[in-house]
């Protein structure tokens, strides 16, 4: 028998040589290779790395204390706006905008990533439970999910703001509470379809227990879409935080977020007269916000394409 088998190896090696000789490449590495070819996604990734670095630096150092007043003369700020000492200008209370924006980067990333993590934990658990158990439990969970779609996020944010008080956690809870459903639905759908795939049947046939099937077959195969979805939640959370802060029910002094800076709510002014008298106060944080949202979306699109199993590039 041994000779038969070796002969077969030789034969198949000859015909399938290309496949065998190829260096070992996992599916993840295949995906990363495709991601690296996507210019927009790559640009997005580099910008995001830059923002992360800025946020990290801001923990240790900012040009001025973000909340320190009169670091530049008020008259000066309004007359010239931008200077070497204050590249992004100052606000009417004489605080340095660049310093505030560096802190804003921290806030944005914490809110974005934090919310995404909460959504992942809740959405993945709920989705896997629903999709894997099917039946009554699935029906109940699906009803709850649909009910949550009816909750208006602004109202919930206001209520939580009043109940829990202002703060990062309040914002993250408010945003998570109204955005975990997409993740749960995605994971449920993935679980439902993956559990019908033949390799799950094969696993059952070889005596694999239910729990192990869930964690070693279904979850890893759903991970690609989950990561993509988690990436897309980050910009949504960042935008929502900026909007809430802009409205004055989000981040409050002494902390600064991009939305709060742009609103001028820290200065007592309104966005409209700020735009006339000191446009940089509105424009710089808005630009930072927009570019960050774009970068996350480009990166997310790139991820989605890279990990789409139908892609064979």
């Amino acid at each position: 028998m041994a000779t038969v088998v070796t002969a077969q190896i030789a034969e198949e090696d000859a015909t399938q040589g290309g496949v065998l000789v190829r260096e070992q490449v996992g599916l993840w590495r295949d995906g990363l290779r495709r991601l690296r070819r996507n210019k927009l996604a790559l640009a997005g990734a580099f910008y995001l790395i830059f923002i992360v670095l800025v946020a990290l630096v801001a923990f240790a150092w900012t040009p001025y204390k973000p909340s320190a007043q009169n670091v530049c003369p008020v008259e000066f700020a309004y007359a010239d706006g931008i200077s070497a000492a204050h590249p992004f200008g100052c606000d009417p209370l004489g605080r340095d905008i660049l310093s505030q924006m560096m802190q804003g980067a921290q806030i944005s990333l914490i809110v974005g990533v934090g919310t995404s993590l909460i959504v992942c934990v809740v959405g993945i658990s709920v989705g896997l439970l629903a999709g894997f158990s099917r039946g009554v439990l699935d029906a109940v969970i699906s009803t709850v999910i649909n009910a949550f779609y009816g909750v208006p996020y602004l109202l919930l944010s206001l209520v939580l703001y009043l109940v829990l008080g202002p703060g990062l956690l309040t914002i993250m809870i408010a945003i998570s509470a109204t955005s975990w459903m997409d993740m749960a639905r995605l994971v449920r759908g993935q679980a439902l379809s993956i559990r019908e795939r033949e390799f799950v049947e094969a696993a059952r046939a070889s005596g694999t227990r239910q729990g192990r099937i869930l964690f070693t077959h279904i979850f890893p195969n759903a991970l690609g879409p989950i990561i993509v979805q988690a990436t897309f939640i980050i910009p949504v959370a960042i935008l929502t935080e900026a909007f809430l802060s802009f409205l004055g029910v989000g981040i409050r002094p002494p902390l600064f977020s991009w939305g709060a800076i742009a609103s001028g709510s820290n200065t007592g002014g309104t966005p409209l007269n700020l735009l006339q008298s000191a446009p940089w106060i509105v424009l710089f944080p808005s630009a930072a916000l927009s570019v960050t949202l774009l970068a996350f979306n480009f990166f997310g699109d790139g991820l989605r394409d890279a990990f789409d199993p139908r892609q064979k590039r």
Binding site: F199, E201, A205, S206, G207, H217, N221
Partner: peptide, 18 residues
């Protein structure tokens, strides 16, 4: 089950790609 195994029709679908 340990005494009773199965080989599947589709060699692509029956192996977990991950």
């Amino acid at each position: 089950r340990r005494h009773l195994q199965m080989i599947f029709q589709d060699p692509f679908a029956s192996l977990d790609p991950r």
